[in-house]
Design a protein around this nucleic acid. Structure first.
Lengths: 134, 134
DNA sequence: TTAGATGCAAAGGGTTTGCAACGTC
DNA sequence: GACGTTGCAAACCCTTTGCATCTAA
């Protein structure tokens, strides 16, 4: 009666992908990672790179920088404002919280960059979905 | 010697698209907008919707919610941190500024949502590109 | 041994684009 | 009338997936 579910297996491909990603702070694309990995594993396929990036993201080992979908959403309100993305129902809601422009100045002072502004999305559960959970 | 460059022409299609987008706060996808516009202009094409959305975005009339590209970038650092996107060289840089988790609490209190965290990207010109400008 | 992982190539799905016809200024 | 805009459809491009094969455990 062995109930061990099997689980994830360690592979050379995933090790190399993670090592390369950890060794840079350039926030590379999947294709760039693919090119780097090919130097060590010339016959690796792009599909394997994608599968492992998704796995590593799901494991919390790396982060994917997107709005959570491959397609765009559009906002009829051109004024900058914060958004809330419900992780359950996937709705995007506007937030009443004013934009904290003082942080722009903080970062400009720290970095020397010309900071024009920032976008922020908060995430969690909206009121409706939160109720359904409990 | 008329030097007027020509410029943008007003069309029914763009008017309808903008009106629909302004009348909702659901942050719709291009496809949803397409379906709505078709109720008024049954033979409008998806291509026209996309062209106008891009134009309206460039004009600052609407906002597009993405990381500025159709493809993902990956971050080998799984800890939450802020990013800076240079509008000129398109590089994504890590920021030393600590994450302002106190804003999460503010928003939770205001909305009743279960706020788990937030992501933020600042934008403007990085140090290198800033120099090149002047 | 065995089920997860890979390589390959085809399929998917959102977005863009070439072109002739059309509409705005 | 000139030239920006549209509709249509094909092209693009990033990402996912089916399947036979390979391999970690």
């Amino acid at each position: 009666m062995n109930s061990t579910p099997g689980g994830i297996r360690r592979t050379k491909q995933r090790d190399v992908i993670l090592r390369i990603l950890r060794s840079t702070d350039s926030h590379p694309t999947a294709d760039w990672i693919y090119e780097q990995v090919r130097r060590e594993i010339p016959n690796i396929s792009l599909g394997t790179v994608y599968r492992n990036l998704n796995r590593l993201r799901d494991l919390g080992e790396i982060r994917e920088l997107t709005y959570g979908s491959t397609f765009s959403r559009f906002d009829g309100n051109p004024a900058n404002h914060y958004h809330f993305i419900c992780e359950k129902c996937r709705r995007v809601l506007d937030l009443p919280e004013p934009v904290h422009t003082e942080i722009d100045a903080l970062i400009a002072a720290q970095t020397g960059f010309a900071v024009k502004g920032h976008r922020a999305e908060f995430y969690g559960l909206c009121d409706d979905c939160r109720r359904d959970e409990s």
